[in-house]
Design a protein around this nucleic acid. Structure first.
Lengths: 273, 273
DNA sequence: TCTGGCTGTTCGGATATGATGAACTGCCTC
DNA sequence: GAGGCAGTTCATCATATCCGAACAGCCAGA
């Protein structure tokens, strides 16, 4: 591991919407390194276009990052495949859907389509991060990581409590992830915000890896009566995205063993009128 | 300058829409460094989330870049200020407008709004780069750089020729940039593509720095008859964005000296009906 | 099934490279 | 004009990086 590069990445991560501008002294204090070192890092990153200098010698994120991000989006099949399917989902249900990936043990929202009868979800947002243990997409993504990885994440970030329903113990998390892996989807039952639920399902790429998760967020009073239909809808949508990405598998996780259903019966499931 | 960080940035820049996936050996060859070094760079960048590993040990850009880019957009007033004004410009003229910044001596397109009677401009695109010496926005941005910087850019990248009108010599460029700086706007008269012209103007931030350039692209046969109105339109639009960014200056560049006009006369200028 | 050639990966010693803190400079405030 | 705080520079030293060669894993073709 190249420590200098690690530090450079740490510097980049300091820049947030809350504090989008940093000076040499601030960075040095934040990373607990000498001023001269922080200076060298900032100067180099700025010279490479990853940061830009303000006229008064402070630093902001640079436009190269925008370019790289566009390249990422352009070359990533995920968003292209998911967006139309998310749009249909929103059109059919009127609820909000999210698309998220796992970054550094946290959920990063990549796309968010708001439904017309959905309540405004302030916490999530494109480009925003949230802890993984409390949301539907987060649990789906964690469930398909090795358990040691999950443990490392939890030990580093802890299990932040949002509501009385938030998972609080490692044991609870282990059981929940096991269940999610088995059944092939996850629920968030008011675990991040009271009154808000969601159903989430994994998206696979052509190599069979889980690369993202998709969810349908619903107010609690509409969630519990419609749970079954919601589940099949999101699982089906996620499966369609997976197939767009080149993933084909006869037996889907929730179809394994004796309870395997015919695929057409699932495809026939539709949104409530 | 931290060479390790420089190399890491070089690695990131290798990833393009044309080649969005790289292996260790390829990177080593492209940067002329030993395989083990390339391996260390890729591995570290992947661990930091700036790259992601594919199942077969190759690498793609990582979602952290998306997050950073969103933070950049979120914290940058430029796009927020420019977009509504660009929309009005497109609505009034039906032509295509571009918003661009200078990255590493090249023009990086940050926003592009296509007009309904505009011809499709394939070369430009959000997140794409072009050489600076041949486009309107490029000449505006170069004109507000120190001449030594411009020289360094030209010496590094050369003056690529696109059409018979493209600037070919350093002397030509120097004169053109001087003119652009004096008059406060630039034309592209079929310099990048035959039949395509544009007028471009600089955008200043609150400290008086030129941070971006805006342009209105027009087919040649509509450009020459309307040049004057186009010019005032784009200069006025760019000035309004600058003011949104906190830039206030009584005397605008093209108003200096004796030929200063009253500001209201410019504001009164509008698009053709 | 075996083989060859192509990957990505590991290792340990030589040395260039980055870390360090004190000193410098410029800016803004009082 | 003086003080303090910011960013910047510099020379020294320790060590993290660089490097080439050897290893391991995969796939294609024989």
């Amino acid at each position: 591991m190249l420590q200098t590069v690690q530090k450079a990445a740490q510097v980049l991560r300091l820049f947030t919407p809350r504090q989008p501008e940093w000076g040499v002294t601030e960075v040095a204090a934040a990373l607990a390194i000498p001023k001269s070192g922080a200076h060298a890092l900032l100067r180099t990153l700025a010279a490479e276009g990853l940061l830009q200098r303000t006229p008064n010698g402070r630093y902001r994120l640079g436009w190269s990052l925008f370019e790289l991000s566009q390249t990422l989006l352009d070359s990533s099949a995920l968003l292209r495949a998911a967006r139309p399917i998310m749009e249909r989902l929103v059109a059919g249900w009127g609820e909000t859907t999210h698309l998220a990936v796992l970054v550094d043990g946290q959920v990063l929202y990549v796309e968010k389509l708001q439904g017309d009868r959905a309540l405004e979800i302030v916490l999530s947002g494109v480009g925003k991060r949230l802890p993984a243990h409390c949301s539907g997409v987060g649990k789906v993504l964690l469930a398909h990581q090795p358990w040691e990885t999950v443990l490392a994440i939890v030990e580093r970030t802890g299990l932040v409590t949002f509501t009385p329903n938030t998972i609080r113990t490692v044991e609870q998390l282990r059981e929940e992830l096991e269940r999610v892996r088995q059944q092939g989807f996850a629920y968030d039952q008011e675990e991040v915000m009271v009154g808000l639920c969601c159903a989430a399902a994994p998206i696979y790429d052509e190599s069979g890896q889980v690369v993202a998760a998709m969810s349908l967020s619903v107010p609690a009073y509409r969630f519990y009566p419609n749970r079954q239909r919601l589940t099949t809808a999101i699982v089906d949508a996620a499966r369609r995205v997976s197939e767009e990405l080149g993933y084909y598998q006869e037996a889907w996780p929730w179809e394994n063993g004796k309870q395997s259903k015919s695929r057409s019966s699932v495809l026939a499931t539709s949104a409530p009128t």
